[in-house]
Nucleic acid binder design. Structure first.
Lengths: 201, 201
DNA sequence: GTCGCCATTGTGGAATACCGCATACGTGGA
DNA sequence: TCCACGTATGCGGTATTCCACAATGGCGAC
């Protein structure tokens, strides 16, 4: 399930099948869901790809499903499909972060194009997230004390000042500093600073 | 003209007057324009505030005006106003970066609220831009050579390595380094790195 | 209990950064 | 022409970093 995959959520089986067939001919992996509830129950944060979400469904609407996903931290690009145009709805969805909002009828090409772009966006986001995860994994190996020392290093303070501030000896600060650079796989405080501003910026 | 100001662009004088009156009662400074062309000719990059832009106008349409503004680097939040709902148009405008897309009829409160939020967004952007401008102003005082040395410092290299790479002596690198810190108003390479990652991140 | 991890401190020395002062050359403007 | 500025270099001294090695006490896991 770590494969990028277009999730088609629609309560109309005929449409699910049609979309799935369309995307499969374009070599896009698909998975279909017959309701927002079903998708929400199954969804895992590690999933990649995008979501094609029908607005009007029995039970939970597409918009409700979207809201629930956002609340759970799902960042998959969402392409909304709707039968009848509604500008305020489209505006609200996009301002909340939806990827696109398209009205029926649309051409095969329209949807293929949208799905491809959504998948590309997600791939790009995943690359950025992988960077952050990697840095955070390094950070996680630091002990509490090492993190305190690191914070002070990142303020550009001398070991001497850090030692005073933490009421420990300079030697200890040096030992921490050395281990920090080692664990974070950097050679200088400058590299460390750049690494972490990527994380926070 | 450095005052935040809501620019109302509409070829219907009655609407211009109505919107202007509405916003003025809310203590929002306004300026009105009877065409996209007129606004485009007058617009200056230093202007702050937001734009309320009618879609359908004689001559240049609101969307054309928007495209032209984007091409010129205008980043003012744009609130589109349209008489007849058109989802694809709204989606396209928002994906290009428009702030909002609202259909007539709307209530006074709707527009007041949108304009206030757009102004707040612009104010926030201006704060961030002021930061960047400040840093760039410092950067601009650096000589060519100093910038080269700075780039190498930001790669975490020792003065010795920098000297080798630029085929100059370590002493000279030290001199540059000192002036760089002085001009950039920082005390350490770490601060410099953080300053510049803010600029680039 | 023993082992490993963490925080702590220490020694001593080599490498590097940081600072003020002085000098020199070329270029462009007053 | 003289002055300001950017670039480049050097000296001497102090502060700081970086490194390898060694050691102690606390704490949780096996």
């Amino acid at each position: 399930m770590n494969q990028a995959c277009a999730h088609i959520i629609d309560d109309d089986e005929a449409i699910r099948d049609a979309l799935q067939w369309l995307l499969k001919t374009r070599a896009v992996a698909c998975r279909t869901w017959d309701s927002g509830e079903a998708f929400l129950e199954a969804w895992q944060p590690s999933w990649r790809g995008c979501i094609v979400l029908d607005i009007r469904m029995h039970g939970m609407s597409g918009l409700e499903c979207f809201d629930a996903l956002l609340a759970r931290g799902c960042e998959l690009p969402v392409i909304f499909i709707t039968g009848h145009g509604d500008v305020p709805m489209a505006v609200a969805a996009l301002k909340k972060g939806a990827f696109h909002f398209i009205e029926k009828p649309f051409t095969d090409h329209d949807l293929e194009d949208l799905v491809e772009k959504a998948l590309a966006l997600d791939a790009e986001r995943q690359r950025a997230a992988a960077n952050r995860d990697n840095i955070e994994a390094h950070l996680a190996t630091l002990t509490q004390r090492e993190r305190e020392v690191m914070d002070l290093i990142l303020e550009g303070k001398y070991n001497k000042v850090i030692a005073d501030q933490l009421s420990i000896s300079m030697r200890t600060v040096e030992a921490h500093r050395s281990r920090i650079f080692d664990k974070m796989a950097v050679r200088s405080a400058v590299e460390l600073a750049q690494m972490l501003t990527v994380l926070r910026g």
